[in-house]
Design a protein around this nucleic acid. Structure first.
Length: 324
DNA sequence: TTCCGACAGTGGGGTCGCAAT
DNA sequence: ATTGCGACCCCACTATCGGAA
């Protein structure tokens, strides 16, 4: 009979911050996919999501490839879908990650790769108490990248975090993760021994409306509807921002928006109905600043965070983002 | 006493499944 | 047939509270 799969663990999480200076850190690229804890035993493979769900059936291309070479391994990694340029593209992966059963045409359309970056147990012997350097060396010895669709991405100890962050920026990757080389693996914890730095872009936007909040934000606003002018001067819709506010900022914004209320959308393009439904429109005269991680395929800001009003700027000065 | 970590809650971009309309 | 909602994924962030420092 087949050997028993190792019990999955909750993945260790990174805290957000600037790349640490000084020695004692290894730096990796941050991959824009979904986290997976991978168990192998014999010819079996089990994939577990960050929240402990078994997602093995959704990724059949990773189960028949001899991952682990018959050994009982517990691995930590990321499932990624690559765009034509070879960059991980979360938007592509979204077509795959909810599917809980084999779907051959979908697998062909959106092939998924497995990037393995940590080794947590070998043949029943836990390695979580070993330092990162040791786990990394043991991981490399396994030669997992000989399996099709599996890679062990690089970890750098000969560059600074700032340098690798610039490399990530040049290649339009999501960011970097710094890992303390002497640190153990802390399952399920958001630890300061892993520090992630996401590349963010600053964007000036025009406020075109807002949506009411709910719960503890029922008396203020839920999100701001964002726009910017294109080269022809038309106000284009850039999506929402619903985070980054303190309570004081929410009240201040509401007080500024309410006198500007109008009955029709200020945008010069159709705002999707599911957003327009709850929208309160305002005259597009306030300029603010947000940061965001990337653009969605239909031209909206992904992971936008509110930074503040820009009373020094005019709405006409805003421009659509140029980077993807 | 102050500070930090964990947690709950609120918001965004998505896809899919299912129930209500 | 359409719509709305929840369940999962990714995520950022604020407020709160209890325990550590």
């Amino acid at each position: 009979m087949t050997a028993e799969l190792p019990a999955p663990v909750r993945p260790m999480l990174a805290t957000a911050g600037e790349p640490p200076a000084g020695s004692g850190w290894a730096f990796e690229f941050k991959w824009d996919g979904v986290r997976a804890i991978i168990g192998t035993a014999g010819d079996q493979v089990q994939l577990t999501s960050r929240n402990g769900n078994d997602v093995t059936l959704g990724y059949p291309e990773l189960t028949g490839i001899g991952l682990g070479g018959g050994r009982r391994l517990l691995l930590d990694g990321e499932l990624v879908a690559l765009d034509p340029a070879g960059r991980p593209d979360f938007g592509l992966l979204q077509h795959r990650m909810h599917v809980r059963s084999p779907a051959p045409e979908l697998q062909a359309a959106v092939p998924v790769q497995l990037y393995v970056f940590d080794l947590l147990a070998v043949d029943g012997a836990p390695l979580v108490h070993e330092p990162f350097d040791t786990r990394r060396a043991r991981l490399l010895e396994l030669g997992l990248d000989t399996a099709p669709g599996v890679a062990v991405p690089p970890s750098f100890t000969d560059v600074t975090g700032a340098q690798l962050l610039e490399v990530a920026r040049a290649h339009r990757l999501e960011g970097i993760v710094a890992k303390r080389r002497r640190s153990r693996y802390e399952p399920g914890r958001r630890s300061a021994t892993w520090i992630k730095t996401a590349l963010m872009t600053t964007q000036e936007i025009v406020l075109g409306g807002w949506t009411p909040g709910s719960g503890r934000r029922a008396s203020t606003l839920g999100a701001l509807l964002l726009g910017a002018h294109d080269d022809e001067g038309s106000l284009r819709f850039l999506g929402h921002v619903g985070t980054g506010f303190t309570d004081a900022v929410l009240h201040d914004l509401l007080g500024r928006l309410q006198p500007l209320e109008r009955r029709t959308s200020p945008f010069d393009e159709e705002v999707p109905r599911e957003y327009a439904r709850r929208a309160r429109w305002v005259d597009p005269v306030l300029v603010g600043e947000v940061v965001y991680r990337s653009m969605t395929h239909d031209g909206r800001l992904r992971h936008a965070v509110w930074r503040g009003l820009r009373p020094d700027r005019e709405p006409a000065e805003t421009r659509l983002p140029t980077t993807p």
